[in-house]
């Protein structure tokens, strides 16, 4: 972890090249071929201007070599972090990886098929929507977990969108797992906030098609955790088309959504904000994600990682200027009295 400003303002990506630094001393050695033949030195007048020009020439040569060697070592300012205030949230994505997520999103009554590469597969639909969501939300901090019979911490809060995307990509590949231990999943998700300073807005985004039971002891632990870490819960509920909504008073239980309704009712008892986003088609999933996006726009204090900045080109530029100065210097100085 990098904290605050880097201790060294400059580092080198290829430090071994610095071994060439002594080469910069070469121009300071006097070379015989630069000697001028003159009959008697005492005859020469005192020439302080000439001496200065001579020194400047050597300095330019030293600088040209020095800058080139430093450039070969690829200098740069190391990666560091700054505090920023932005708009966004700390979002733990809790992705249901159970077997039923391999089903296609189909209309009520139709038999869902499990085809690996179907674009309608709930897993694929959710994955694509999530991927676009993360892509757009550059100021948010994401952590990704999957759960089946066990929770899988894919990444802690990560600064690398590439790694989060790789986790989302992988979530689409695994086979469905038996079991849906949402309780342990939620507790694992809450534990991601452990030891992190509260920075403004925290959300667990549960992506699930439901059918998970949570026992009473675990329910209490979840309630406590939500209150302690001040985490809101958003449930992206991948519902089959035409099925009744969770808040529908009579119907859900009648069609066998008992566990889903129980989940929903339990979530409503949470001490923090809870919202459900029901989606029954890929379009609806996109809309739900857009809605979540619109809502999670509170000011957020976050640390932005400023990637390493490479200064190599500046050093080559400096060497180039020095070489040019050397050229001018040569134009002004006499190297032989035998002029043509």
């Amino acid at each position: 972890m990098i904290d605050g400003a880097p201790s060294l303002p400059l580092d080198f990506a290829q430090p071994w090249a610095l071994l060439l630094l002594p080469l910069a001393l070469l121009p300071l050695l006097r070379r015989r071929r630069e000697e001028l033949t003159f009959s008697s030195l005492p005859w020469l007048p005192e020439d302080s201007l000439g001496r200065w020009i001579e020194r400047l020439g050597r300095a330019a040569a030293v600088l040209a070599i020095l800058a080139t060697v430093l450039a070969l070592a690829r200098p740069g300012r190391p990666e560091w972090e700054v505090e920023r205030i932005g708009r966004g949230a700390e979002i733990v994505v809790l992705f249901d990886s159970s077997l039923s997520m391999d089903d296609e999103m189909v209309a009520r009554g139709a038999h869902p098929k499990r085809r690996r590469d179907s674009p309608l597969r709930k897993r694929n639909v959710a994955r694509e929507a999530l991927s676009r969501f993360v892509e757009r939300r550059k100021e948010d901090r994401f952590s990704l977990l999957m759960f089946g019979a066990a929770p899988f911490r894919v990444t802690p809060f990560s600064q690398s969108p590439e790694v989060i995307q790789a986790g989302i990509a992988a979530a689409g590949i695994s086979n469905g797992l038996p079991g849906t231990d949402l309780g342990r999943g939620l507790i694992a998700a809450l534990s991601q906030f452990e030891g992190r300073a509260y920075s403004g807005s925290r959300v667990i985004l549960l992506v699930s098609d439901g059918a998970a039971e949570i026992d009473d002891a675990t329910r209490q632990r979840i309630r406590d955790g939500m209150a302690k870490h001040r985490v809101a819960l958003d449930w992206l509920y991948l519902r089959s088309a035409n099925w009744p909504r969770l808040d529908d008073e009579k119907e859900p239980e009648a069609v066998g959504l008992i566990t889903d309704v129980a989940m929903h009712r339990f979530f409503k008892t949470l001490p923090t904000t809870y919202k459900v986003f029901e989606a029954e088609s890929p379009d609806a999933v996109s809309k739900a994600v857009a809605e979540i996006e619109r809502q999670q726009n509170l000011p957020l204090e976050y640390r932005e990682r400023i990637p390493r900045r490479d200064f190599t080109h500046l050093f080559y530029g400096l060497a180039m200027v020095a070489a040019f100065a050397l050229l001018i210097h040569r134009g002004l100085t006499v190297r032989s009295f035998q002029t043509s």
Binding site: S97, A150, Q159
Partner: peptide
């Protein structure tokens, strides 16, 4: 197997990869 992370480039994501790696433990035995 459960795939956790699709391959990503190491040199750009080294520290994030290490953080993710540290999360793998026996509790994941499903």
């Amino acid at each position: 197997i459960v795939m956790l992370l699709a391959p990503v480039e190491v040199c750009r994501n080294y520290s994030a990869l290490l953080e993710a790696l540290s999360g793998i433990d026996g509790r994941m035995a499903f």
